[in-house]
Design a protein around this nucleic acid. Structure first.
Lengths: 343, 343
DNA sequence: CTGTTAGCGCCTTCAC
DNA sequence: GTGAAGGCGCTAACAG
């Protein structure tokens, strides 16, 4: 039993041609049932495995797709990837994972590597807004390899995207805080050159306006998405003359940091101060003081991104370019950190 | 500019042969500097990308590896995968992700798919102990495709593994509880047909024995790794005549459930009851009552698994089979849920 | 129904 | 230094 049997080995074994073996293995109806059965048995006996590399080379379809994310070890991206993998599994697509670590060079490298690997499509959450990266993506499209953005997207002609309704979710979160009686609501944002953060900011702003509240520049703080950053930001806020009475944070981690710092300064939550995060990280639910947050519908985002990809490659009409913009709903989950009534 | 340029396109453009183009692109020293430069420039201009499929078919190395895990959206597996990806990135290996969802059939399918895809190696955390799956893995080895287990392993001849010192960690955790004054320590286990859980159980048992304590069958409860299961298990324990005064849980999630249930029954932690989990899930650190846990050194586990894989494929000596068993250290992190002094 | 042939894109002897 | 030819494993067109 040679390490790797090919259809030729099977053909020789049975004194038939390789083409017949190939056909039998692919259930070609023109093959007699007897030879078909014989081939399949022999293949199993010889531990034959079809070489998809050869098949891919021949057909031009590798049945691999590439997924590019900033990092995989975050609940957010991991569950999107789970969604993608599960959706694509029945279609026999493999998922190749790449991490950028938010590095623009790495993002370009990843795209090129995936192209070399002949992936049939690229699903990505962009790390970088540079226009050089735009050009690289445009080159991908020239090669007729579909690109689909999820969550962090750019506006590039011909690229579909799947996102959540960041504006609406931020609007709802802010409104909720206002309804809880808060009127001085601070906002923690991520890098606003990314659409998601810009949209969340706009939702926040609009909710204030619609409630007759003013946007205070001092209340808007850019933070990294980690606990320490949340603490720092609260320290800044509490130094203001006119201190806020609530925070809407675009990051759950920063929200957690904020809560820890507020508590350590003796401020009671939610009685004196309400906090809402974003992302529905597992810990927000697990805390004794559970944290209100926005669920980003991650599994669904992954699944839909995969579905859009499938539509794209099944679109045989080469003239009509599909460019789909799916916006999923994101649900505000109200928990203890912002529920005055229940307490 | 055609969708996908090949070396033939470049050759035609420059009126040279494809072989020369190939050599130039691969920095073959025999090529004159001028043509080399010319080729590289033209390739860039034509947006040429080397087709790794063809290269792989020719060379027999795909530069892809497969990673099989029960699920990817758990902090544990996601960060192992991160480690693997980062370690392999400089070596130009791509990572293909497969999920089994603990399903034995799925595990076999995944292995076969990866084999079809011609991966150069398979890194996996086993989902199933059935001997049918053993045979499938043995067939992989026959094809000279290295297999490496991480965390959940089996003993199969020729398969290397990377695990943590589950016995030692469980021993340390149990000892720690005893030192805190607990003498009636319950244990939540996972499926003991998996080595990791068996080893943790043995560590627990040995620590009891070494401290002159008896193992009580009633105190050992098999739980799923989720919050609800932890609550259920505590309910069972509190119905016993001789109630325990501490829990060592092989799952952080079950530990969390246990804590929630204990608190709701008015039992004070850590004063009346200590709890230690396993896994160092992010939330264990974030809780107001932070949960003691064992850090499983996940990133490192991934990196080392990748390193072992690299060693394996670089081992040209076909006679000597490498079979490496790496056991990493796992650190007990003592937090509030089991620190009587500090409270 | 089955065999023959050619080619997917690349690399690698073997020539010159 | 460079070109020509063959083959990695598979499939599809064309014969028969």
């Amino acid at each position: 039993m040679s390490p790797k049997a090919t259809i030729y080995d099977i053909a020789k074994e049975l004194n038939i041609s390789a083409a017949t073996v190939s056909r039998a293995l692919n259930n070609n109806p023109k093959i007699s049932e007897s030879t078909c059965k014989l081939v399949i048995e022999t293949a199993a006996r010889m531990n034959y495995k079809q070489n998809k590399l050869a098949q891919a080379l021949k057909s031009g379809k590798s049945h691999n797709i590439g997924v590019i994310v900033p990092r995989i070890d975050s609940n957010f991206f991991a569950s999107i990837i789970r969604g993608i993998e599960e959706e694509l599994y029945p279609h026999k697509y493999n998922v190749i994972i790449c991490q950028t670590h938010e590095d623009e060079k790495r993002e370009i490298e990843n795209i090129n590597t995936l192209l070399n690997t002949q992936v049939d499509g690229i699903l990505m959450s962009v790390s970088n807004m540079s226009s050089e990266n735009d050009r690289v993506i445009e080159k991908v499209l020239e090669k007729k390899v579909p690109v689909i953005f999820f969550d962090r997207k750019k506006n590039i002609h011909g690229v579909s995207s799947v996102t959540i309704n960041d504006f609406g979710a931020a609007y709802a979160a802010t409104k909720h805080l206002i309804e809880q009686g808060s009127s001085k609501i601070a906002y923690f944002t991520g890098d606003r050159s990314l659409e998601i953060y810009e949209n969340r900011f706009n939702g926040y702003k609009q909710a204030l306006i619609d409630s007759g509240l003013n946007l205070k520049e001092d209340y808007v703080i850019q933070t990294k998405s980690n606990v320490e950053a949340g603490k720092m930001a609260v320290k800044k806020l509490l130094k203001l003359k006119d201190k806020p009475d609530a925070i809407f944070s675009a990051s759950d981690f920063a929200a957690l940091g904020a809560i820890q710092e507020l508590k350590s300064q003796g401020i009671r939550i939610p009685e004196d101060f309400c906090v809402v995060g974003f992302g529905n990280e597992p810990f927000t639910e697990f805390m004794e003081l559970s944290i209100s947050s926005v669920d980003q519908n991650t599994m669904e985002m992954g699944k839909v991104a995969a579905q859009v990809f499938m539509e794209q490659i099944n679109n045989t009409d080469k003239n009509s370019k599909i460019e789909k913009k799916v916006v999923l709903n994101a649900e505000l989950l109200i928990r203890k950190s912002s529920s005055k009534e229940s307490k």
